[in-house]
Amino acid sequence: MATALPGLPSLPPQFKPIQHHLRTAQEHDKRDPVVAYYCRLYSIQTGMKIDSKSPECRKFLSKLMDQLETLKKQLAGNESVAQEVVGNAHVENYALKLFLYADSEDRSGRFHKNMIKSFYTSSLLLDVLSVFGELTEENLQHRKYARWKATYIHNCLKNGETPQ
């Protein structure tokens, strides 16, 4: 099923792997535009690696690039966008803040949708860090743990079980 992303054509099926990163970008347009900017940058880079030849993918990537260029103009003067090393720290701090919130809820035995989403979003933002270079071993571990926890707790709640 095609996913509606405002301002973009229907998501080509090849781009399913970046669907959640694009959704995270939209969710952060107002909350944290720097995070939104780098989520889109990750999506376009990853999308170009997946398929930049087929007409539907080229059309999608071109529109996404338009959005990114507009966003960069709007964020002119923001050093997290002007300097990628600052952007790297910004996105990493944001991802770890979400991770620590979800982890704290988990360790306190408070299982709910918001903490599942925080674990999952932190894993997506750790993916985004790859635009700045290879992930550190610590970030790789955090990403793996966050993704596993999000899936595990989601399944437990769905099945009426208490996560261990």
Binding site: K53, R58, L61, M65, K72
Partner: peptide
């Protein structure tokens, strides 16, 4: 016709790469 459309696709692909490089101040 096949090689023409391949050439067009390649040009558009290059254009995307160039726009991405400009965006990231890598040109």
């Amino acid at each position: 016709t096949g090689s023409l459309s391949a050439s067009v696709a390649s040009t558009e692909q290059d254009e995307l790469s160039q726009r991405l490089a400009r965006l990231r101040d890598q040109v």
